[in-house]
Structure formats: C-alpha cells, structure tokens
Design a protein around this nucleic acid. Structure first.
Lengths: 339, 339
DNA sequence: ACTAATATCGAAAGCGGTTTCGGTAACTTC
DNA sequence: GAAGTTACCGAAACCGCTTTCGATATTAGT
C-alpha cells in the first residue's frame, strides 16, 4: 500500500503538503496540487481510513445490533426487520457511513457489545428488536455513545416506533365494522410493543361494547412456527370458535391460514384473519392478507436521520418519533351476517 | 477515551509494558501484569482498533458486497441471499471478524468498491449475486485483495456454487417420473448459474427422449413480480398448456401458483409446479412447494471458511467448491395419467 | 525602495498503539 | 566470587495521516 510519503517523495515535497492537497487546504499552490493529485492517481493511492480515524477521531462507522428473540429468523433473514435495515443502510451510506455488525467477538477476544463498539470506535449505534432485558443492550443504551433504537422502549435514547396502538385500533375496528364481535388476538410475547397493541385491541373492543375476556387474548411467540400453529389449533378447537383472529404479525397470520385450511376451514368464509406488518409474504398467498402496513422505509430512514444528527451535532437528547401505519385491505376478512 | 498512556501513568510504568501486559508478552512480571490489568479494568480501558490496525496491518474486517439485479429484493431483504449472509456472518464472527458493507461512498467521497475496500483496509471481501459485468465487481476480483465469490463464475478467485446442473436434473427427472413430458422452464436472466440450470434441464429432457423446443424455455427476471406474472400468464394462455412448470426459483413459483389459482386452475391437479432454492416461503403456502433445497448454511460457512483461510495463509489459489442440493417433495406435483 | 500583507511550504507533534533491542538487577553455576 | 543466565523493564522507532505554526518568498502598497 502506498502512502502520502511515497507521493511526497515522487513529487518532491513534504507529506504535509500532500495531505493538504488531498484535503483541499487553501495553502497549496495550484500547480503543486495538480502534480500531487496526478501522482496520487497514477500511483493508485488509497488513504488509510484507520490512520485518518486516529487523527480525526471519527470512523464513519455505525454499529448495527439486529437480533431477534427468534432462533430461526434472525438478523438479515427476519422478514420485517431486514426491510428496516435495508432502508437504514441506504440512507446512512448516502451520508458516507459504513455499517458494521457488532458481535461479541473481536479479533481473538470475547467482548460485550459495548466493548465491541468502543473498540471499533463506532460513531454511533442502531439497535433494533433486541431483547429488552439483555444487559448487553442496556449497557450500550446507558453509555455515552450515540444510540438510536427501534421498537425498544426506554427513557434515555431516541427511539422510533410504529403506531402500534393505532394499528390495532384500525384492525379491530375494521373487524367490528364487519360485524365481528368474537375476535381473538393471538399476540406475541409481552413487551412494550406488544403491550401497546393489546391496549389498542382492548380499548377498541370496549369502545364498541364487545365483551372481552381472557379467552380473547392468547399469547404466542413471534416467529415460532410450532408455537403459532399450536396456539392456532387450540383456538380453533374451542367449542365456540371465534369469527375472526388477529395474529401477532403477517408471518404468524400466513402460518395460521395454512393451519386453518389444513383443518378444512376456509378463509374468509369460515373465519376472518388479519395480520400486522405488511410483508410481501401476506400478498403472495391466497387470499391476500388484510393487515397493517408498517412503513419500514420511513422507519429506517428516520432512524438513520436521527442517528447521524446525533453524531454530527453531539446532541443526544431523547426524541421519540412515531411513524404512521395504514390498513391494507386484502381478501382475508368477510362480513358476518347479523342474526 | 482512555489510553495505555493513562494506564501507564497510574500504574507507574511505561506504555510499552502496558501493551505487553495486555498482549500476554512473557517479559512482564506477574505482579505488574496484574496491577496493569486491574487498572485497565477499573479505568474502563478499551483498545483502539484503528491504532491496532495501523501497527498490525490487519483490521479484522471483511467487506461484504451483496447486491442483486432486483430492485425490490436487495441485500438483506433478498429471501435467498440473506440466508447465506446470515450463515457467513455467524462463522466469520466466530473467528473474530467484523462485517462491513462496502458501498460507493465513504466519508464525503464517492469511491469505487475497490477503493472503498482498500481505504477500509478490509482483510478480505465476499461477493455474492453481483452483476457479472459490473466493472466495480470485476475490478475487485482482479485486485490483490482476498476475495471469495458465491454464484459468480470467473477464473481468478475462489468460488462457491450450488450444484445447479444437478438441481435441475433432479427436478426435471422428478417431473418426468410423474409422466410429465410437456414441461416449461421459466428460468431467470441468462448468466452462468442460469446457464447451468438450463443445461441440466435440457440434458435430462433429452436423456428421456422428451422433445424440447424453444417453447419450453421462457426467460423471466429474477424477483420481478410483474415480469414473472406476465410470463406465467403467457405460458398458461397457450393452446397447448404444459402439464408442468419449473420456475426460476421459489419466489417465482409462489407467485406463479397465485397466478395459476387466480385463473381458476388448480395446483397440482391441473398443473404441476416446482421451484428452486428451498425457501421457507414455499412451505408456507398451500400446496407445499416441491423444490430443490440449496444448503445456504453450508454455502455461507464454506465461503467464510475459504475466505478466512485465504486471509490467514495468504494463499489465494482459486478453489471451486460445490455444495450439494436435495429434492424436497411438497404437494405441488401430481402424476399424469398416461393416455 | 521599504514596509506590510499574502502565498506557499514543511518541521514537528500528535493520534494510540506494537515491537525491537539494549540495559539493569537478580539469580545460577562451579 | 567471577562469569554467564535469566527476568524484567523502557526508550525509541514506527504505522499513516492531520494540523498547527513558524519560516521563507513573493507581491502589494505607498
């Protein structure tokens, strides 16, 4: 690898001048600047970002922490979060940052996430869908490093949320408008996001004078095929089968529909189904899934915008941004005849 | 951020000794080592990986180039490649490497991929599914940097391939064994991988004395919904509708099945369908898709293994690794009655 | 023609580490 | 008790780049 010293030698000037020429300093003669740039070009010079980071104290690197509670669909392969990540990446790249996935290993040493991020001197970190109570993530949140989180309730760092409450309100109202009264919500593990959604469900049910008992709330695990299938079968096997099921998300809904169909029932004729997320997945099956679309592009972009803002202004004040959701009407719901 | 100099001052020794203590050099007294380690611990010391990279000439960073020809399903969100990436990440992380996505922007400057990788001083690069003829990718391949490619035919760097020829042979033979003779292959854009698959298809058809004309090969675009739907409709509208369709991949097959069903036809009763890849997607619909499973875990791991090997041994000799595929029998194919 | 302002450059210190090599001090060995 | 080891430590150079600040040369101003 060639360095500014090599260029300096060939041009016949000092390394300082080379550096200045490359960085558009005003105190370099136009002639020498040109000679330096040409030489750099012809020698195939590539600045060493490590050395630059060392002096500038800025790495142009953003750490990424994307883990889910699911064993199967993790990081990139998570249908929903990968979309956010993609959008986040696009925006940060545009601004000149690189993405580095933070792990628990660096070189030969095992380290905590915080240690990893500090070693790499990441300018900032984005955390999504990480386990609430993981010490590793909390440690990061409580550090001095610029952090933005997605779907992660806390009271120290900026966060981006979809309107979960609103989302479930829309879904529930949609079903109620179709005369459904006996609606089961197969939700995911209880956490802040799930809590908001449940609240949206309950409030809407009550507002419409629907009876709501513990029977109407069934807990499943996000992205756990077996668990979702089991819970769905349990609900379907009840004496009084609900007329509609709200699944925790589209993935669960698509699986749920399969289970329903395998039991010889039809969607939406025998039972209505809705999901949450707005995955392409839900639109690839028959019937198209009615669901809530989360604006992943917007979420990723806003997260990126906020994070780079914090990095560049050094102003870490917590800002909570919420992103609107929309109801997508598929063909998985049907009006119930009033008796 | 605290440095080894801070530690040295507090302990009362030189920075050299601190460095040695931290790096397990033998010429440090057990007592002083302990005092140094304790001090580092209590001061919350975190080595600066940039500084280390500068002296050691190793960054523990691997560049990742994952782009597809598809506009919609790119990078992380690509159902198939995200799985490979996930596996690749797992393995490289285990070995202590970090993943950095290489883009065309770094800090404030626009750069080529090669320049990006060189600036960041990546120890190596993994390229997958990148456009063959992109100068950017070729430049990288022809550089001195350790590179491993996935599904990318070339004659300079090591590559990992699934047994594409074998895969299509298995699929075609499977259909022929079910007495299908009129099979249309809706393949993707012509490139090396697609070429191998087409060869597998043609060879198997011929080996079984099936007539094969240009009618049997239809070109579509990978992961282009509109295009896939159009091509499928075209095939279905023919006077003599084929009894089976091989789609370019599972994504296309799932879309294809939807199109078929929307036209009032049944899979597999009216037409048999198979895919390629082994995505979860194909198993979430009714009927379960018959397909070829690519071992993404293995592909990612072998790519990682080969790349770290090249990095660590500096032996770049081209090695081509091929990974076996298996036929997964779903319910999307049916035996044709012989007339 | 003489001072003042300006243009251009480079020495040197600093960023945070690693590693070589020489110097003591203590310890063996016979 | 002299000579040879061994254990331990630190000065210093180096990795590649940035940036301050002073030096010199040139030009402008009057």
């Amino acid at each position: 690898m060639i360095t500014i010293y090599d260029i300096a030698k060939n041009v016949g000037c000092s390394s300082a001048t080379v550096s200045k020429a490359l960085n558009n300093y005003p105190d370099v003669n136009a002639m020498t600047r040109k000679r330096i740039l040409d030489m750099a070009e012809s020698m195939g010079y590539s600045p060493n970002s490590q050395a630059q980071a060392l002096t500038k104290n800025k790495t142009w690197n953003i750490g990424v922490l994307f883990e889910t509670e699911s064993e199967i669909r993790n990081g990139f392969t998570h249908y929903f979060f990968s979309q956010i990540l993609e959008s986040f990446k696009k925006y940060t790249e545009e601004r000149g940052y690189d993405l580095t996935f933070v792990s628990q290993k660096i070189g030969e040493n095992k380290v905590s996430f915080l240690q990893h991020v500090r070693r790499r001197r990441c300018d900032g970190v984005i955390i999504a869908n990480y386990d609430y109570h993981d010490q590793n993530a909390l440690e990061l949140i409580h550090s001095k490093i610029p952090v933005v989180v997605i779907d992660f309730d806390n009271d120290t760092v900026s966060s981006i949320f979809s309107e979960n409450y609103e989302g479930l309100k829309l879904l529930t109202q949609h079903l109620i408008d179709l005369n459904h009264r006996d609606i089961v919500y197969i939700h995911g593990q209880r956490n802040y996001v799930t809590g908001e959604r449940i609240r949206g469900f309950e409030d809407t049910m009550k507002a419409n004078n629907c009876i709501i008992t513990e029977e109407h709330l069934v807990e499943s695990k996000y992205y756990d095929r077996q668990n979702i299938a089991d819970k769905t079968r349990l609900v379907l096997a009840r004496d009084k089968r609900p007329t509609a099921i709200i699944f925790s998300d589209d993935y669960a809904a698509v699986l749920g529909i399969k289970v329903i169909q395998e039991l010889g029932l039809r969607v939406p004729e025998d039972i209505s189904v809705v999901g949450f997320d707005g995955l392409e997945l839900g639109q690839m099956i028959t019937p198209h899934l009615t669901t809530i679309v989360q604006d992943t592009r917007m979420i990723g972009e806003l997260a990126a915008k906020r994070l780079t803002e914090i990095i560049e202004t050094k102003n870490r004040t917590k800002v909570d941004i919420s992103v609107g959701v929309t109801l997508l009407e598929g063909a998985s719901c049907k009006q119930v005849k009033l008796i």
